[in-house]
């Protein structure tokens, strides 16, 4: 059985290894190009699929915890009818960032397989750690995802509440603080905040 398989593999190798006699160089180049386009497209399509909320809440870990909590917040329903979905806040739109995030997502597949957060209790126990990853990321990119929708340059302070405009025109305007410094827990419940700066 094993020997047979080995024979087959050997045959395949010799075919692949032989210089092409039947196909022109031009055809091969063109074919390679087409294959490349298909591969690239497929890759991007895969990215598109994994960039939808449906994909995220396909996992009960995501659906039963954070998605339920999101539904009562302003980012789910509001007077303007604009919805923020999971990838709006969690996957950078910039392509290179996107790949970096997807690489990290492999960790989540690992977590799925080994059930790191597969019950509410485990999720709550790990929540501070997960939240800290997100805070770190948003702090590092100056809350890029928030700013994709909320552009500081177009904020009309006169239309904001006094509390909001006071903060936005000082600490935020000076660049001393970024959105996530003040707006933690905007989309989900907070973990135990003991020791977090500002709490």
């Amino acid at each position: 059985m094993l020997a047979k398989l080995f024979e087959k593999l050997k045959l395949v190798w010799t075919v692949v290894n032989r210089p092409s006699v039947h196909y022109s160089l031009g055809f091969l180049t063109l074919g390679g190009f087409v294959a490349g386009v298909i591969f690239w497209g497929g890759f991007n399509t895969a990215l598109e699929v994994t960039n939808q909320e449906k994909f995220c809440i396909g996992c009960h870990e995501m659906e039963n915890n954070v998605y339920q909590e999101l539904q009562s917040t302003i980012h789910f329903t509001n007077r303007s009818g604009v919805r923020a979905t999971c990838p709006d806040c969690h996957v950078p739109h910039n392509w290179t960032d996107k790949i970096a995030r997807k690489m990290q997502a492999s960790k989540e597949v690992w977590g799925k397989v080994f059930g790191t957060i597969n019950t509410r209790e485990k999720f709550e126990a790990k929540r501070r750690e997960l939240a800290e990853h997100e805070w770190e990321r948003l702090k590092a990119n100056d809350s890029l995802e928030c700013r994709n929708c909320h552009n500081f340059d177009y904020m009309d302070f006169t239309r904001q509440s006094k509390r909001a405009s006071q903060m936005h025109s000082t600490s935020l305007a000076s660049g001393e603080k970024t959105c996530i410094d003040c707006h933690k827990g905007i989309a989900h419940q907070l973990p135990d905040m003991a020791g977090v700066e500002g709490f």
């Binding site: 009562s72 917040t73 302003i74 509440s161 827990g185 905007i186 907070l190 135990d192 905040m193 709490f199």
Partner: peptide
């Protein structure tokens, strides 16, 4: 004198104290 929508007060965190 201000809105408190979504301000979490439970065992884990007291948002008002922020």
């Amino acid at each position: 004198p201000h809105k408190i929508d979504g301000y979490q007060i439970d065992l884990k965190v007291n948002k008002c104290m922020q």
